[in-house]
Simulated assay, not measured.
Amino acid sequence: MSRIEAYSHTVKSVARQLGFDYCGIAKAEKLNDDARRLEQWLHQGMHGSMQYMENHFDMRTDPSLLVPGARSVITLLKNYYPSQQQSAHTPHISKYAFGKDYHEVIRAQLKELLQALNEKIGEIHGRGFVDSAPVLERSWATKSGAGWIGKNGNLITKHSGSFYFIATLIVDITLDYDDPFAKDYCGSCSRCIDACPTGAIEDNKVINGSKCISYYTIELKDALLPEQMKDQFKDWMFGCDICQDVCPWNRFSKPHHEINFTPIPEILNLSTKQWEEMTEESFKNIFRHSPLKRTKFSGIQRNLRFITRA
């Protein structure tokens, strides 16, 4: 085994020990094709009011601008599919938000991974990212062999679906690169397109973010939601899983083993009435480590009024 192969084996071994469900490696290089697609997507205004998507454009497509001397991009997947589901007639919340905020959980694990690699391999300069920096993680995941981009814009793995968080670790050492995932297994299936109540999924895997329920219930900070969207939210109060729930590949989803993603009991069980009667103080206490804090109490109440108002 060569030194590069040995280093790569170490990377994947440590990733497994830290509880990641997949680890793949791609060569750090400019994503020219992705840059063109992103530029067109932004030009068409499909990011809505998410102005941060326009920032640091070059960094999104050139890993060497994030980590000087970048040689390798390590993609890590972490399953979040829950073993428990919400009670009937409970305002819907995306499964990714059932437990502790994944940013906090995975960021700490990425830091631990980089520290372990420095101890086992030698001095490595790198940065870990999890959905909070200018990184095109789905593109890197495909390049590392993890899966393909579905028509709903999600990364889909052939053996266990799409309920995964994607983390990226960019490092300045050469590693053994995995083969890109070259095949698209969506075929002629259009279930996600047909099921999306707001028509956010367009042709050629283009997602109009400004039409997505997740955009309205999480990203949009307006005091009121657009009246024309009334009756299209299907009781989703925070995020939306419709396009994943109908995907045939998610019949292979298996419950995660990450204790930090254990569902908060209130998310599973609170009735609409209980949500309506919740105080801001209670919200801040119950969800202080939850992704729900991103929308804040005022956003949750806004969303709740919108899906319950006759």
Score class of each variant (00 low, 15 high):
Gln85Glu: 03
Gln85Tyr: 03
Gln85Met: 03
Gln85Cys: 01
Gln85Ser: 02
Gln86Tyr: 02
Gln86His: 01
Ser87Tyr: 00
Ser87Glu: 08
Ser87Gly: 03
Ser87Ala: 09
Ser87His: 06
Ser87Ile: 05
Ser87Cys: 07
Ala88Gly: 07
Ala88Tyr: 06
Ala88Leu: 13
Ala88His: 10
Ala88Arg: 10
Ala88Met: 08
Ala88Ile: 12
His89Gln: 12
His89Met: 07
His89Pro: 02
His89Thr: 11
Thr90Ala: 04
Thr90Tyr: 09
Thr90Glu: 00
Thr90Asn: 08
Thr90Ser: 05
Thr90Phe: 02
Thr90Arg: 00
Pro91Gln: 06
Pro91Thr: 03
Pro91Ile: 04
Pro91Gly: 04
Pro91Arg: 06
Pro91Leu: 08
Pro91Glu: 10
His92Thr: 12
His92Lys: 15
His92Ile: 14
His92Trp: 13
His92Met: 15
His92Arg: 15
His92Asn: 14
Ile93Leu: 09
Ile93Lys: 02
Ile93Trp: 04
Ile93Val: 01
Ile93Phe: 00
Ser94Cys: 02
Ser94Gln: 08
Ser94Thr: 01
Ser94Gly: 02
Ser94Pro: 05
Lys95Ala: 12
Lys95Asp: 01
Lys95Trp: 06
Lys95Cys: 04
Lys95Ile: 08
Tyr96Asn: 07
Tyr96Leu: 08
Tyr96Trp: 10
Tyr96Ser: 01
Ala97Ser: 10
Ala97Gln: 07
Ala97Ile: 07
Phe98Tyr: 15
Phe98Val: 11
Phe98Ile: 13
Phe98Met: 09
Phe98Leu: 11
Gly99Ser: 10
Gly99Tyr: 08
Gly99Gln: 08
Gly99Cys: 05
Gly99Asn: 00
Lys100Arg: 13
Lys100Gly: 09
Lys100Cys: 11
Lys100Gln: 13
Lys100Trp: 08
Asp101Ile: 04
Asp101Ser: 01
Asp101Cys: 07
Asp101Thr: 06
Asp101Val: 04
Asp101Arg: 04
Asp101Asn: 01
Tyr102Asn: 02
Tyr102Gly: 03
Tyr102Ser: 02
Tyr102Ala: 04
Tyr102Asp: 07
His103Val: 11
His103Asn: 07
Glu104Cys: 02
Glu104Phe: 07
Glu104Ser: 04
Glu104Gly: 05
Glu104Trp: 00
Glu104Val: 11
Val105Pro: 02
Val105Asn: 08
Val105Ile: 14
Val105Leu: 14
Val105Ala: 10
Ile106Tyr: 00
Ile106Arg: 00
Ile106Glu: 05
Ile106Phe: 08
Ile106Ser: 01
Ile106Asn: 01
Arg107Asn: 12
Arg107Asp: 11
Arg107Ser: 13
Arg107Gly: 11
Arg107Ala: 10
Arg107Cys: 09
Ala108Ser: 10
Gln109Leu: 11
Gln109Cys: 09
Gln109His: 13
Gln109Glu: 14
Leu110Phe: 14
Leu110Lys: 12
Leu110Pro: 10
Leu110Val: 13
Leu110Thr: 13
Leu110Ile: 13
Leu110Cys: 14
Lys111Met: 12
Lys111Leu: 09
Lys111Asp: 12
Lys111Ile: 13
Glu112His: 15
Glu112Tyr: 13
Glu112Asn: 15
Glu112Lys: 15
Leu113Asp: 09
Leu113Trp: 14
Leu113Ser: 12
Leu113Gly: 11
Leu114Ser: 07
Leu114Gln: 03
Leu114Thr: 06
Leu114Ile: 04
Gln115Asp: 15
Gln115Phe: 14
Gln115Arg: 15
Gln115Trp: 14
Gln115Lys: 15
